[in-house]
Structures are given as structure tokens and as C-alpha cells.
Deep mutational scan, measured.
Amino acid sequence: EEAIQNFKALLSDMVRSSDVSWSDTRRTLRKDHRWESGSLLEREEKEKLFNEHIEALTK
């Protein structure tokens, strides 16, 4: 649960536009030290959280 919250915070800070792809964003996020705290999450979970974040940005 904490890993999810940390990853959501990372997305909020780093992803402000809804027209970015997961693969491009992932490359950028990996450069942030907080990426490692999400290592407990599966890749699919990270992508799902990313997609939810993008959906929220479009509303």
C-alpha cells in the first residue's frame, strides 16, 4: 500500500500531461530516486496506476 502511494505521488509530480505514453514516461520516471520505492510493485500494477493517473488528468 505504501509503495502504491509513493508511486502515485511520483506520477503526480512528474506526469502533468495526458498525451504521454507509458514507455516514454517510464524512462523519465526511472531517473527519479523514488522509482526504486516502487520496486515492490509489479510492472503491470505500475502501468495500471499510470493509466488511472492519465484518466484523471483528462477529466
Rank of each mutant, 00 (worst) to 15 (best):
A3S: 11
W22N: 02
F50P: 04
W22G: 06
E44R: 10
K59C: 13
T28F: 10
H33Y: 09
R34S: 02
S12G: 09
V20P: 01
Q5W: 03
K31W: 05
K59W: 06
K48N: 07
A56R: 12
R30Q: 15
E42N: 15
S17L: 01
Q5C: 10
E47S: 02
T28H: 12
A9K: 13
L49E: 00
S12H: 12
E42H: 14
L11F: 00
R26L: 15
S17D: 13
H53W: 00
S21G: 07
A3Q: 11
T58Y: 01
M14H: 13
I4K: 12
L40A: 14
E47T: 03
K46T: 07
L11N: 08
H53T: 04
K31R: 11
K31M: 11
M14W: 09
E42D: 15
A3E: 09
L10I: 06
D19E: 11
A56E: 14
W22Y: 04
K8P: 00
K8N: 00
R30K: 14
H33R: 14
D24G: 01
E42V: 10
F50Q: 05
A3D: 14
D19G: 07
K48F: 04
S12N: 14
H33V: 15
I4Y: 06
E2T: 10
F7G: 00
K8G: 01
R34P: 00
R27Y: 06
L49Q: 03
E47L: 06
E2S: 09
V20F: 02
A56K: 13
S37I: 01
I54S: 08
E55M: 10
E42F: 06
D19C: 07
R26F: 14
L29C: 04
S18I: 10
K8S: 00
D32T: 09
F7S: 05
K48Q: 11
K59G: 10
Q5K: 15
K31S: 10
G38W: 05
N51C: 02
E55Y: 09
R27D: 14
A56M: 12
V20R: 07
E52W: 00
S12L: 12
D19K: 11
D24A: 11
D13E: 12
S18F: 05
I4N: 04
R43I: 15
T25S: 10
L41S: 06
K31H: 13
R43Q: 15
T25L: 14
D24W: 02
R43A: 15
S23Y: 08
S18Q: 10
F50S: 04
I54Q: 09
R26K: 14
L10P: 04
S21D: 09
K59H: 15
L49I: 09
E42G: 15
A3H: 08
R16G: 07
R34T: 02
I54N: 05
W22F: 07
R16A: 09
R16Q: 13
E1V: 06
V20L: 09
Q5F: 10
T28S: 13
N6A: 10
R27W: 03
L11M: 01
V15D: 01
S21M: 05
S17K: 07
N6C: 06
M14R: 13
E44L: 03
L49C: 05
K31E: 11
I4T: 10
V15A: 01
R30S: 14
G38P: 08
N6E: 10
Q5T: 12
E44D: 12
T58W: 01
S21R: 08
H33G: 12
S18K: 11
D32K: 05
W22L: 02
R26A: 15
L29E: 03
R27H: 15
E2Q: 09
T58P: 06
L41Y: 03
E47G: 00
K8F: 01
L41I: 12
A9E: 12
R43T: 15
G38C: 15
K46N: 00
G38Y: 10
K31T: 12
S39G: 14
M14A: 12
I4D: 03
L10Y: 02
K59I: 07
E52K: 05
R27F: 07
S37N: 13
K31I: 04
L41T: 02
V20I: 08
D13P: 00
D19S: 08
L29G: 02
M14Y: 15
T58L: 02
V15Y: 00
L41G: 03
T58D: 13
H53N: 07
H53A: 01
T58I: 06
K31D: 10
D19H: 08
L49Y: 04
K31C: 10
K48Y: 04
S12Q: 12
A3N: 10
D19W: 01
E1T: 08
E47F: 03
E2M: 04
R34C: 02
S37F: 07
L41D: 07
S37P: 06
N6G: 05
A56D: 11
H33E: 10
E47N: 03
L11W: 00
N51I: 07
I4W: 00
V20C: 13
